[in-house]
Design a protein around this nucleic acid. Structure first.
Lengths: 227, 227
DNA sequence: TTTTCCCAAAATATCGATATTTATTGACAT
DNA sequence: ATGTCAATAAATATCGATATTTTGGGAAAA
């Protein structure tokens, strides 16, 4: 799973060597999202240091950055732990996500232009081409598709919040053990229909389909391991 | 100005000694909010180390935490700098803030109970009692009042976003050099009327007054120093 | 002049060691 | 048994030093 909203989005560095902090950030983030680090689990600097083959400073800094994403909690003088997770939190995330993504999608469509439309169609195409068995790649493209919908909203902070909520949602999917299993739903069709409504500039329809998409997905995720 | 939404909200520690990281976090946060550190300004570890009389590690960690609040930007291998600020960003903040606080206020009122009402009235009372000349104290109480309105929404993530946007807004007030000068408006009356509508459980009226309060304040803040 | 390349200076990022703080254990008194 | 308290162990937080990386300035070439 590639980190798509790291703290720094800078590219094209001549030497593509990420800093130790960046590497630690991405690795710990993925471990929390996939549930390898359980909710509420104490994140010991020593253990992470050993596992990630790096020093204490990059670990501490990465954990501090992850506090922003609400994936890590910091307890003064008592270290860090993975954010807790209970069904109540999931409901809040789902609700907020619907509200914020509706705003973002409406603004995106209001600002619609050819460039955005192209990117959206492209993102969709790339997603459907991926073999869904390749979880990690599919996860990346799925995420890219959803943000192709929203990214034209011209509201970076809103987008950032949507990204955070998206990730939190992904985490609950993994915690519920339903990382990719959507049952008998025709998810591919849902995606296509959302895209079509957006391309048609039909904001109401696109929003309706998007929210339905999320709410049905939400109902799939039963209770997760508390705390 | 007391930091009200630090990364750790734990209280009642027997020894109320904050860690060096906490102290640095609060200090740097305030310097950015008040404009002592200008938008886009490079935040050199060395300088901050000297100014705050502490080591490099707490500084770096505090800066990493501030990335979450969108007050600091991190450039991989190139250090940190204070977040940039331009009028366009301010408009986005104002817009988002209105949308999110409306949600929070409606939910707060929907969940209204006596406890919440008491806290709200108390927070208002404390705010009006403060001499507005005492900028720092007034700022704290003003903030407390606004969050007394919202805190019953039962949605911690939403509340966190509102707090972030509130702080970003405060920053623009300072950058515009209007830290407390609201011109001839009767702000006290606006506050009272918002509270009264909330206490009456009149969500529509309370929201209307709250948003009006923000939008008028927003129009007071002219352009800020770009970048 | 303008550009390119290289070297020196400055700043960041990281490590390893130490000082503090918190958590744990077990003896001792109740 | 049970609760308290001190000693010990474990973990965090912080410091100081070092290794890397970026930045800036100027000499040499175009």
């Amino acid at each position: 799973m590639k980190s798509l909203n790291g703290p720094s989005a800078t590219e094209n560095s001549p030497t593509p060597v990420a800093s130790a902090t960046q590497i630690a950030y991405g690795a710990i983030r993925d471990m929390i999202l996939t549930g390898e680090l359980r909710p509420g689990e104490k994140l010991k600097i020593e253990s992470l240091k050993d596992k990630l083959q790096t020093g204490a400073s990059p670990i501490r800094e990465a954990l501090s950055l992850l506090v922003s994403d609400q994936l890590v909690e910091r307890l003064d003088q008592r270290g860090f732990r993975a954010a807790s997770a209970d069904p109540k939190d999931f409901e809040e995330i789902l609700r907020l996500r619907c509200a914020l993504e509706e705003m973002a999608l409406r603004q995106s469509i209001a600002n619609a232009d050819a460039q955005w439309e192209d990117n959206l169609v492209l993102a969709h195409h790339r997603m459907v081409r991926i073999d869904p068995k390749d979880i990690s790649s599919y996860e990346d493209q799925h995420r890219a598709f959803h943000f192709a919908l929203l990214e034209n909203c011209n509201s970076p902070i809103l987008l950032r919040y949507c990204a955070q909520l998206y990730d939190l949602n992904v985490r609950y999917r993994y915690l519920a053990g339903r990382s990719q299993n959507y049952g008998k739903r025709d998810v591919a069709r849902e995606h296509r229909e959302i895209m079509e409504a957006a391309v048609d500039r039909d904001a109401d329809l696109a929003v309706e389909r998007l929210l339905h998409h999320y709410q049905v997905t939400g109902s799939f995720l039963g209770q997760v391991a508390p705390e």
